[in-house]
Every structure is written in structure tokens, then in C-alpha cells.
Design a protein around this nucleic acid. Structure first.
Length: 578
DNA sequence: CTAGGGTTAG
């Protein structure tokens, strides 16, 4: 009887069933009955709940146990620590730790590792490191916990140090390190480590591939991402919500939302994150109407949107110019769901209104919002002023921006561009002088392009690429071709006070132009070209790219800082609105 | 037996 019950408990992975079993035990008065001073079922339940990712149910059981005078064993401790790490519940975990010390329990490898993990999640990395260093013995689990602890706080060099020094690495060590690079935005290193992992004969699991897909999404590495998708299929790895969401995001960020939609439609279970990712993906591609349709569908299916989902919906309105829908959604956020708008939501509204030329309404929001507008709010406002060439309001915005972010180059560059575009060259000069004086450097424009699975990087004015000669020759040819289609270099936004020829030159060295020229000489006729930019695309490059798509009969997909542009036959899906 | 690695916004 006893052993049957505990076997049942330990085999059970569904919290609902566990609660049923618990109810039966309580009604039979068996829950706290123990043999040899140990509450048998009690311990088993604590373990099972922690394992079934229902940690909140473990903790009250533990408190019961302590009140009953029966003793937990050291296995129970590792599970209660796991539960406390998951919740997370630092105080309970600490008292458990103290109790274990008081009881003189055996701190074996399992308990020690659980402690390291607990402290790394609920305390500081250095707490965890202290435990790690003091442990009488360490195995790969201890190392792996420390690696992910460092990765979580972004200390990748410490993580890597441990990774390199550990005697034997397993799949999880590799996976933790790859995840660290992916989360820290160091996608190239994530990919490189993955290649190395495979070379050393480790087969990646679903969890590793989720991180890898995030890295692909970040870099716009479609070929790599597709390879992962193929790998999943050919190895029969089930696409759960995590993998599904990561795939959707990867396809969306690599310019193939429709492939993302296919994955989305095939997902049997969709959680909030999956919906949000799909909605945001459509929004980025300017497919706002579809995004909002999905948002309503999500609401109908009973998934309750959170603040982030609303940001997705509002962004979708912005990129598709749906002002009234945006206003309505902003209201319904509080009215229907009781979500109090955060700065970000006000930022979305300001963006939506300002981009659509409703500058005064946007200004009213900035001035009346219940919290202090942050740099992103002023930034959105200023971008709108710039787009609609309202120098006066832009200056007003910039005064606030410079106060909030006195060391960021973007503000100065935007202001100088506004002045230059409206012919106020003396003011533009003044801004540049300020930048020089404050030693603020302009963030260099950077474009990535994937050619046959390899990602190439171009910086503005960059001549480090091995084929730079060919690239420049090609650009001359391109420029000649598009000039005959009506291209006139748009020098308004070039802020350097150099002569006209040099301005042409500065423009022609923009990183996306170099990348496009390179893509044209290294891909077959008709192949789609995909670029990822770190900044917003400039007006001149946008005009040029439209014409290139027509003259060379290529589809060119450009991922901006915030959205996608699909150039085809001389037009762009953003409808010149970004 | 038990412990360690995962996805979205700005």
C-alpha cells in the first residue's frame, strides 16, 4: 500500500493528478503518517510537485512537515530548494538551508548543487560562486549551474572561463553557453559555438535549438534558421511552444512571416507568447490588419493579453497607419483588462500619432501622460517631427532628449539632420561642434547580409571586405543604372559640411549600399537579397533600393531597427512610411 | 532516484 502510493506519486507529472492524490491521502489521514520519523508521502509529494513545475504547491507542504515534527531528508531538501528557485522564494529557501545545517544533514553533491542553483537564482552570482568554490566536490552539473548563472547576469567572460576550464562538458554545458551568447546579443559566437559543439559529436536537443534560433533571428540568418527547422523535422523533435515561438520569431525577423504563419497554424497549443510573437511579426512587416485580426482571435480563444501583447498590437497599428484602431486598443487595454498603461504604451501612442502627422495630439499626450516621458517617448515624438519636417517641434523634443540622454549620439545626429534638411546649415554645424566637443561618436551604420549561409558585415565607409574593389566598381555601375531611372542622390540628410562630390561619396558608402552591391555580385540573377540594418534606413538608401529592385529585378528585404521593408519592382511595402 | 540548459517588447 505505502509503496504503491509513493510510486504513483513519483511517477506522476501532472500537478492536477497530484492534487487528487494529495486529497485522497489527507482524507485517509495518511499524509503525515511516517515511518522512522520520516513523512514518506509528504516527501514524495514535495518532490513530485517541484518536478511537475508546480513549485507553489511544494512549499506549504514543506511548512506542514516542519510543524509536524517529522524530518525531511536530504533528497527532500534538494527538491524544496528547486521549488524555491522556481517560484522564486528566497526566504523559504534560506530557512530550509539553515534548517539543513541545524539538522546536520549530509551536504552531498546533490544538495550542494541545488544550493548553488538556488543562490544563483534568488541571490547574487557571487553567493553562488562562493558555494561553488567551497564545495568539496564539483561535477559538470555544478559547473553548468555556474555557467548559466553568469550568463543570466551577462557576465559571459566568467561563464566562458568556467566552460573552458571544466574537465568534461556535456550537452547542457554547451547549451548553457550558447544560450548565454544568444541572450547577450553575441549571436555570431553562439553560432560558432554550436558548430564546434556538433564537431565534438554532441547532438543538440530542442532547448539548445531554441537559443540557436534566437541567434539566427537576431542576425537575420535565414539559411541557418531554415536548417534548424529541417533538423527538427528530420530528427523527429517535437515542436513545442518554445520551439514554435522561436521558429515564428526567426522567420518573422528573417523576412519570411508567411513561413512563420505556417508554423503558427500547425502549433497544437498556443500560449500568450506564441500569439504575441506572431502578432508582432506581422506588425513589423506592415501587415497591421492581419496582426489585429489575430489579436481579436487570440482574445476570442480565451488567451488574456498582457502589457507586452498590447505593445505588439499598438506597434502593428503604427506600422500600418491605423490611427483610430490604435486609439481604440489603447482604451480597451484599461477598460477591458484593467492593464495600466506604462511608459512604453504611451510611447507607442506618441509614435502612432506623430508618424501619422498628428503632431499636436502627440505633443498633448507627451505633456499630459501620468509619468515622466522617457527618452523613447521623446525619441518617437522627434522622429515624427522629423518625418513631417516640423523643425520647431523637433527642437522642442530635442531639448528634453539631450537632458535625458546627454551622451547618446542618436539625438545629436537626428537634430543635425533636421537642421541640414531644412537648410539651417549653421545650426547643423553647431550641433556637430557640440558632438565633437563632448566627444560623442556617431553610431556607425552597419548592415549584415547572408550569402550562402555565411553572414557578411559592412560598416559605413568600410573598406575591410576582401572584395571591396569589386563592390565599389559594382556600385558605380548600379548608380549609373538607377540615375537613368531618375535617381538623384538625396544629400539633405548628409550632415558633413563637405563639397558636393564628397557628399555623393559619403552617401554611396552607406553600409546597405555596399551590402547590396556585394549581394548583386555574389548571388544568382533573380535571387532575393536580405539585409539586416542596425539603424533606421535613410531616405537616400530607401530611394536607391526601390530603383535597384526594379532595374535588377530583385526582391530586396531589409530589416530596419524597427520594421521590415520589402522592395519589389520599384516600390516598398512600407509605402515610404517608416 | 535527486540537480543544471529555452521563446516575446524597448
Amino acid at each position: 500500500m505505502n509503496s504503491n502510493f509513493s510510486r504513483l506519486i513519483l511517477r506522476c507529472s501532472d500537478p492536477k493528478h497530484l492534487r487528487e492524490i494529495q486529497a485522497v491521502l489527507i482524507s485517509g489521514g495518511l499524509l503525515l503518517s511516517g515511518s522512522f520519523g520520516v513523512a514518506f508521502f509528504h516527501n514524495a509529494l514535495i518532490r513530485a510537485y517541484a518536478r511537475a513545475s508546480s513549485p507553489c504547491s511544494s512549499i506549504p507542504l514543506f511548512s506542514d512537515l516542519l510543524r509536524s515534527g517529522l524530518l525531511p531528508d536530504s533528497h527532500t531538501f534538494s527538491f524544496i530548494l528547486k521549488a524555491c528557485s522556481l517560484v522564486p522564494a528566497r526566504l523559504t529557501g534560506l530557512s530550509a538551508h539553515a534548517l539543513a545545517v541545524k539538522l546536520g544533514l549530509d551536504f552531498d553533491l546533490f544538495v550542494n548543487n541545488a544550493l548553488i542553483h538556488f543562490h544563483s537564482v534568488t541571490g547574487t552570482v557571487s553567493d553562488a560562486r562562493g558555494l561553488f568554490d567551497r564545495s568539496p566536490q564539483r561535477d559538470s552539473v555544478s559547473y553548468n549551474s555556474m555557467i548559466s548563472a553568469y550568463a543570466r547576469v551577462g557576465d559571459l567572460s566568467s561563464a566562458r572561463e568556467l566552460f573552458d576550464e571544466m574537465p568534461t562538458r556535456d550537452v547542457i554545458s554547451w547549451s548553457a553557453m550558447i544560450a548565454g551568447y544568444a541572450q547577450g546579443g553575441r549571436s555570431k559566437e553562439a553560432l560558432r559555438l554550436f558548430t564546434q559543439m556538433q564537431a565534438e559529436g554532441f547532438a543538440p536537443g530542442g532547448k539548445t535549438l531554441v537559443s540557436l534560433l534566437a541567434a539566427c533571428a537576431h542576425m537575420g540568418a535565414l539559411e541557418q534558421g531554415k536548417w534548424v527547422h529541417g533538423y527538427l523535422r528530420s530528427n523527429g523533435i517535437k515542436i513545442d511552444v518554445f520551439l514554435g515561438t522561436a521558429l515564428i520569431d526567426m522567420y518573422a525577423k528573417c523576412g519570411e512571416v508567411d513561413l512563420g504563419l505556417e508554423v503558427f497554424d500547425e502549433m497544437p497549443k498556443k500560449n500568450l507568447m506564441a500569439w504575441t510573437t506572431m502578432i508582432k511579426g506581422l506588425g513589423m512587416h506592415g501587415r497591421g490588419v492581419e496582426a489585429l485580426k489575430l489579436f481579436s482571435e487570440m482574445e476570442r480563444s480565451g488567451v488574456v493579453p498582457d502589457d507586452i501583447a498590447f505593445i505588439g498590437a499598438l506597434c502593428a497599428c503604427t506600422h500600418a497607419g491605423l490611427v483610430d484602431r490604435g486609439r481604440h486598443i489603447f482604451d480597451s487595454m484599461t477598460r477591458s483588462y484593467g492593464i495600466i498603461p506604462k511608459v512604453e504604451h504611451y510611447g507607442c501612442m506618441v509614435d502612432l500619432l506623430a508618424r501619422n502627422g498628428l503632431l499636436n495630439e502627440a505633443k498633448e499626450i507627451v505633456e499630459s501622460m501620468p509619468m515622466k516621458p522617457d527618452a523613447s517617448v521623446w525619441g518617437a515624438f522627434m522622429a515624427g517631427c522629423r518625418f513631417h519636417r516640423n523643425v520647431e517641434l523637433a527642437e522642442y523634443a530635442v531639448k528634453h532628449l539631450i537632458q535625458l540622454e546627454p551622451d547618446t549620439s542618436g539625438v545629436y545626429v537626428l537634430l543635425a539632420n533636421i537642421y541640414a534638411a531644412s537648410g539651417r546649415h549653421a545650426d547643423a554645424k553647431m550641433v556637430r561642434y557640440l558632438m565633437k566637443k563632448k566627444r560623442i561618436e556617431k553610431t556607425p551604420g552597419c548592415t549584415l547580409v547572408e550569402i550562402q549561409g555565411t553572414v557578411h558585415q559592412f560598416l559605413v565607409g568600410d573598406s575591410s571586405h576582401p572584395r571591396i574593389e569589386d563592390i565599389l566598381v559594382k556600385w558605380d555601375e548600379i548608380e549609373g543604372q538607377i540615375r537613368s531611372e531618375g535617381y538623384v542622390p538625396n544629400k539633405k540628410e548628409v550632415l558633413l559640411d563637405i563639397n558636393e562630390d564628397e557628399k555623393d561619396d559619403a552617401l554611396s558608402r552607406h553600409s546597405e549600399k555596399l551590402a547590396i552591391a556585394f549581394a548583386l555580385i555574389s548571388t544568382e540573377a533573380g535571387a532575393t537579397i536580405r539585409l539586416v540594418k542596425n539603424l533606421r534606413v535613410c531616405t537616400d538608401c530607401h530611394d536607391a533600393t526601390k530603383l535597384i529592385s526594379k532595374v535588377y529585378e530583385r526582391e530586396i528585404v531589409v530589416r530596419d531597427r524597427t520594421r521590415f521593408h520589402l522592395f519589389k519592382g520599384g516600390t516598398c511595402t512600407c509605402k515610404d512610411f517608416w
